[in-house]
Amino acid sequence: MTDRVRVALTVNGERVDAEVEPRQNLVDFLREELQLTGSHIGCEHGVCGACTVRVDGTIVRGCLMLAVQCDGDRVETIEGLSDSGDVADLQAAFCERNALQCGFCTPGMLLTAQELLLQSGAAPSREQIREHLSGNYCRCTGYQAIVDAVEAVALARQGQTP
């Protein structure tokens, strides 16, 4: 009954066919089977946000979804979004503002911030940015630099200067 299950999904635009153990969560599948190690594991309980990936266009906790559930889904990780340039301006702002230290939370932060910026009509306030990032743990920065970087990109995308 606990046999492997065949799945077919798209990861960063590439079709992936695999046989997965039902118990393997999505982020372990990405890291161990596909060697996409840019998505990280910080808690395995959905609290820290380091495993954030996109499934069918919305961000999810990679540790709270099973790989077997992703049959037919479109999965995107930081590697794919970097190659496509999807988050290039956020990445540049994070670098310029030193909005990361150890970098372990950064892929999850970038994906989460990008979702906020794609949803928002107007540039979100600093408070809205902080609330949207409430599920992403960073132990290094104290968050201010991250909020600065996201705010700068939000304004830049609206054609405003910070």
Binding site: G46, G49, T52, T58, I59, V60, R61, L64, M65, T112, E115, L116, H132, S134, G135, N136
Partner: peptide, 9 residues
């Protein structure tokens, strides 16, 4: 309820 990524799912 929790955080955006959790509410998405």
């Amino acid at each position: 309820i929790a955080h955006p990524a959790i509410r998405n799912r």
